[in-house]
Design a protein around this nucleic acid. Structure first.
Lengths: 210, 210, 210, 210
DNA sequence: CATGAATGAGAGTTCATTCAT
DNA sequence: AATGAATGAACTCTCATTCAT
């Protein structure tokens, strides 16, 4: 009956749980991820999850808040350096793309949550999702005022951008497989910078006057 | 102990299960949908699902194949009437959008599957997903050959189109809520025809030679 | 990581735990009361319960001993003033009833313990329960010797008295509800003095010689 | 991986579960009884309990209804033979006592439920408990009308009777132990008939005029 | 074809208890 | 004397799956 007692470092344990929860929830979705698994990966007792996050739902919300806060912060930060709305828009796209690529859980979580018949999304998530969209709206507004963007329906353009990037990131492996198997043109070898440059160029063309 | 045995022909029961499975899997996702629920909605015994579809996974694949086949057939059918690649592309977008709107399970399923760290997607599904994309590639190719489209990376454009439409359809309720709550510009009142017209216009602008 | 250590003298903390344990065990029973809850109500760390009372069972026994000691002391004290066995019996009944009423945990605990297939009752508890009964036997004996009580089987009479009082106290709310709902005659408005006067009168009639 | 499939007799399994649930809930109370234990005793899979009774609470209510219905039926049945309220009262007491003795779970369950801070008792239980009390009230009423009973507060008398009998039944083992250990007069050797005869005699004396 | 009884594995959650600090 | 981190076992409940009828 050897009872090995662990670390005893609250902050570390709490963070460890969150880190692994992000990974697993993104990979497998909410219901398919079990707390058993999370705790095993953390090498911590399952009860610790309840100790720190009250419930599975509580942990999940912590995960979402963490991820969305990070991407928002990053976008805001990058845009400090730009004054021109066009440049801001470019920066928005590139920042989002590179973040999505290096944190591939963001796209899957976003897609999964948004596809979960949206209306039931918990408030926390809702609020945090809005934040990112509002950053986008803001850029668009300023662009329109300066006469740089024409005929913009921000919701649709926003979904074109993040929809495409999200899908490109989450399907990466799949696209490689399809290319190897059937020689299908799936952009298998493009890296994220090429892709986001392309998107930037296309969106620019789309929004410019005339 | 009177046991009432329903007499229904086999085909009918099998179809009934598939129909309700489509509804429920789309609404709640794979793991959150229980076979108990599906069988109750069908007013059929749970064991029948195994009889016809072998397993939960088997039923799920049948669901996906059904949906993807339907959308492919629809796209092909609509395009019989067009000769011009630009018109074909427009038709592709509009057909997909209107189908997605009237079969709102398609977008959620597509997003969910694609966000499920794609590599594990079963072969059947894989094959069927490719079919739709190949229809798209085909249109693009012909457009390029005729010099109508320039600078096209089909995978990215494809994901822009279906990414945006999928997100717009699945977030419908959410966008209405956000509009009512905060007056946010979420395209809440646009109908799908306006939206797909807008997308058609923007994509056209994007692809036309300078 | 500032850790605020409460300074309270040991006795105070120990008593505080006992006090709240009495309340909670009586209200919800042994298994439905959690040490978490007790410690939260005390605003003390859960581990302190183990520090002072070794285990949940240990705390529970302390609770019971405390209660039974109190009621015994009270009965003994009140009877100092009486010489006549009949008056002592009356006093026993009234003291028990008024104590039960003002410490409503006594009846529930007694009933619960006695209904817990008695044989497993721990020794401490056993000893303390006997004490009260022996006070009763003593009164009866003297009454019989003086020829005042006839045909007394003390165990049965004892259970009639404390059985009735316990049930009346623990069912108070229930009886009010039943009266309000169905106009049932449940003695809903009687106060404890009327009731114990009635019991005294009836027991007297029961025991007096022909 | 030997999977032994059992009986396949619905009625039998359902009854078996109820039977063992009665035993265990009475012996250990609601929260201390685990469904694991019940299913093991039945040699049936735990899930069967949910299959037949939906939840632990559901099973518990079934248990209570069963017991209370049985005692009510028995009382009603025995009283068919009597016309005189005094005889009916005697019969009520004796029937209750002998039933309690041969179904010792009744007293513990009654005591436990009534001691559980009555107000939270579920409706089903509430209704069934009332039924027995109303049978009692009825007898008393007729006795008073015929001038046979005087000065009756039915709730108190009722609780004296069932309180005493319940306690005598549940403490049987305890009383024997106390007698053997300390020679205490605990009515250890009396059988239930002697006891109920004694109660009948005492209650009669209590209620008669003069 | 269809049913309902039965199962086993695992889910989220609670809780008494221990121990380093 | 007091704390909070950590544990393991148990609990209620769900679910995909099987099988006799």
């Amino acid at each position: 009956m050897s009872r090995v007692v662990k670390k005893r470092n609250a902050e570390a344990s709490k963070k460890l749980i969150l880190k692994n929860a992000i990974k697993l929830f993104s990979k497998k979705g909410y219901s398919s991820t079990s707390l058993d698994e999370i705790s095993k990966v953390c090498d911590l007792n399952k009860a610790m999850i309840f100790y720190y996050y009250k419930s599975k739902q509580g942990l999940y919300e912590a995960v979402i808040v963490k991820i969305l806060d990070e991407i928002c912060d990053r976008v805001i930060n990058e845009n400090k350096n730009h004054e021109d709305p066009q440049e801001e828009l470019n920066s928005f796209i590139k920042t989002f793309a590179s973040f999505a690529c290096s944190h591939p859980y963001l796209p899957s979580l976003l897609l999964r949550e948004l596809s979960d018949s949206g209306a039931k999304i918990p408030k926390t998530l809702f609020v945090h999702m809005k934040k990112l969209y509002m950053l986008f709206i803001d850029i668009v507004k300023r662009g329109e005022e300066k006469g740089m963007f024409k005929d913009v329906v921000p919701m649709v353009i926003y979904f074109m951008i993040i929809g495409a990037i999200n899908l490109l990131v989450t399907t990466k492996e799949l696209r490689i497989k399809a290319y190897e198997a059937d020689g299908l043109d799936t952009c298998a070898t493009c890296d994220i910078d090429e892709i986001s440059d392309y998107i930037v160029r296309k969106i620019k063309k789309m929004l410019k006057e005339q």
